[in-house]
Amino acid sequence: MFEVRFHGRGGQGAVMAAQTLAEAAVIEGNYAVAFPFFGAERRGAPVLAFTRIDNKKIYSKTQVYAPDCVVVLDDTLLDTIDVVAGLKPEGIVVINSKDKPEDIDLGKELRTGAINATSVALEILKAPITNTTILGAFAKATGIIKIESLEEAIKRRFGEKLGALVGERNALAARTAFEKTVIGKSKGIKKLEPRKQWLPTYQELPVGGALVEGKTDAGLIGPGSFIENKVMGWATFRPLRDKEKCTMCLLCWFYCPEGTIVRISDRGDLMTNYDYCKGCGVCANECPVDAIKMVRARV
């Protein structure tokens, strides 16, 4: 049995990638299952999906804890999530990154296939949707599936839903990625502290789960505690405000759905707290004097 865990963000198509891989495996005469971690998926929020491949019927219905391969659709996830947790020692990482494997720090030295899937996708699909592109890299890095089978699976699944042309283009994206994937070994320097989580026993759990403002070893809980949730990783772009142009009309402050723009200096100036900016771009779009520009959040 070969088990794969996909890490992505809501809207990137991790679930579709997992399903397409399963279909490709079936095309090759194997048995495969693919399933999402059924979370409350929101655009930009981290999501998980899984694929299992075997040459006989698969009975296991649990999540994958010790994958043979981890696929990372978005390398910003590396900052907050230990994507290689549980990966088998001889396991493989397939990652969307502009860097070479040697420059990617996974906290462990692991066999790694790297592809700048975002740029391939932008070039071929004209959109930063990397789920088919990354599958090409997966085929190259793992060798457990033929690129032809993947192309076929992509055409079927995407073609069925979005039309033959879309299927063809996505297949081409996978093929292009297949050819461009660089295989090497990742760096193993950083130590990623697993995010602390408050896990009370049933006796410690407040009665009925009712919470007031509180603090635990893992941080704040209760009303207002979502500020513990830094969402900067969701952002592809972030706003830059030109103070000279700004007239302090406060429209950006009013519109920001996150509350990430705050008034400072006794309300005479604004500051953007990028920890909570998801990069929607509403502020820039609405600024009446064009004082806000959206720039790439990471270069």
Partner: peptide, 29 residues
């Protein structure tokens, strides 16, 4: 007016609405 609105963040940042969510924007204000 907008300027006179309170700085109180009674619906804090870090919530998990999609980027650009019209509901989050309306709730906050």
């Amino acid at each position: 007016t907008i300027k006179e609105l309170s700085d109180d963040n009674l619906f804090t940042a870090g919530h998990t609405a999609c980027p650009g969510c019209g509901v989050a924007m309306s709730i906050r204000n």
